[in-house]
Amino acid sequence: MPTFELGPNQYGKAEIRLVHVERTGAGDRLTDLNVSVALRGDLAASHLTGDNAAVLPTDTQKNTVYAFARQFGIAGIEAFATRLAEHFVATQPSIHEARVTIERYPWIDVDSRHCLRRSGGEVHTATVHHGHYGTQVVAGVAGLVLLKTTDSEFHGYLKDRYTTLAETRDRILATSVNATWRTATGFTDPEPARAALVEAFADTYSHALQQTLFAMGSRVLDRCPDVVEVKLSLPNRHHFLVDLTPFGLDNPNEVYYAADRPYGLIEGVVRRDGATIPPEVTWTF
């Protein structure tokens, strides 16, 4: 008879939508979050025999998120995620590791008191791992859409029998930035890192999106002394010139079509030279 064993496993409550309103005399402060919790520990019995004695219900995890928002407020998503992760491990003997991931959706005041508007499509992110190895905090931004209409080239690349892409000395460069950064101290204000990403994208004359990636990561490290590592994922949102010659028209880099897919995906890590990086926590899901 074949035998089987249980491999790595985890469980939790995903995408807990939380809107917190801090009432102040100067106007309301709104925090809009999407919180996901994942727990690991002595949970084999639940999988193997259906014994749930070690299982903290995912509904309880959801309720904890809401209760903590009321009890402690949300000073910052990194601190809020850390408080939650440490709580689940400290209060449940069967739970040895916790991961809390938070997405924060920015809102902007309209009348400085009670009216706000959603700010674009980007979100601020924080992921906290807590366990026997301590606490690791990674902050970031996702869906930060950037585009420059010029100051970008792409040429001198490998060519083989299947290459049809024409070299260009002037092109639109666009991407949707997904970036995370890890600090030596745990918490950092995300705005300087975000501003550094945008600034580097804007003022780097790009011969390749890979070059731009390194410039963006380097700028974050330069502007944020507590950051030791930046991870970047940059999909290349291709814009191709439309051939207007069938209509008797030229196209001096004015009319493009934006390709949805497929797209190039450039990813990389920029670290401080000689920086001590804590061991990566492996979560396989």
Rank of each mutant, 00 (worst) to 15 (best):
159 K>I: 11
118 R>M: 07
180 T>P: 00
116 L>A: 14
136 Q>R: 13
165 L>V: 15
131 G>R: 07
202 A>V: 08
145 V>S: 15
140 G>C: 07
180 T>I: 00
142 A>P: 10
161 R>N: 10
140 G>N: 06
116 L>D: 12
146 L>G: 07
150 T>K: 13
148 K>W: 13
176 S>N: 11
156 G>V: 04
111 D>W: 08
165 L>Q: 12
120 G>F: 02
188 T>A: 08
152 S>R: 04
105 Y>F: 14
202 A>Y: 13
118 R>L: 08
103 E>R: 05
124 H>T: 01
136 Q>T: 15
166 A>T: 10
113 R>T: 15
159 K>N: 09
175 T>R: 01
167 E>I: 08
160 D>V: 07
127 T>Q: 06
132 H>Y: 14
145 V>R: 15
131 G>L: 06
164 T>E: 08
177 V>M: 02
180 T>R: 01
185 T>L: 10
197 L>E: 02
164 T>Q: 11
138 V>M: 02
184 A>G: 14
202 A>G: 09
163 T>G: 05
128 V>G: 01
130 H>M: 08
127 T>N: 04
175 T>C: 02
104 R>I: 07
121 G>W: 08
198 V>M: 07
183 T>I: 00
144 L>G: 00
171 R>I: 08
144 L>K: 01
113 R>S: 12
108 I>H: 12
141 V>C: 00
105 Y>A: 12
103 E>Q: 10
122 E>D: 13
181 W>Y: 03
162 Y>M: 09
129 H>N: 10
143 G>V: 02
199 E>A: 14
175 T>Y: 01
185 T>H: 05
152 S>C: 07
136 Q>E: 11
159 K>D: 11
186 G>T: 02
127 T>Y: 03
119 S>Y: 14
106 P>D: 01
125 T>I: 00
192 P>A: 06
103 E>L: 10
150 T>W: 11
186 G>D: 03
184 A>I: 08
110 V>R: 14
113 R>E: 13
168 T>P: 04
166 A>P: 04
165 L>F: 10
120 G>L: 02
192 P>E: 07
166 A>N: 09
184 A>E: 11
121 G>R: 14
111 D>A: 10
165 L>E: 09
172 I>D: 08
199 E>V: 06
138 V>S: 00
186 G>F: 03
201 F>L: 06
122 E>G: 05
134 G>K: 03
203 D>Y: 11
145 V>T: 15
184 A>S: 12
152 S>A: 11
113 R>K: 14
136 Q>L: 14
112 S>Y: 13
121 G>Q: 15
168 T>M: 03
172 I>W: 10
143 G>N: 07
202 A>M: 13
192 P>H: 04
118 R>C: 05
143 G>M: 05
143 G>C: 05
199 E>L: 10
174 A>E: 10
201 F>E: 06
131 G>T: 09
146 L>T: 07
126 A>K: 02
135 T>V: 05
133 Y>P: 04
124 H>M: 05
146 L>E: 06
150 T>R: 13
165 L>H: 11
108 I>W: 13
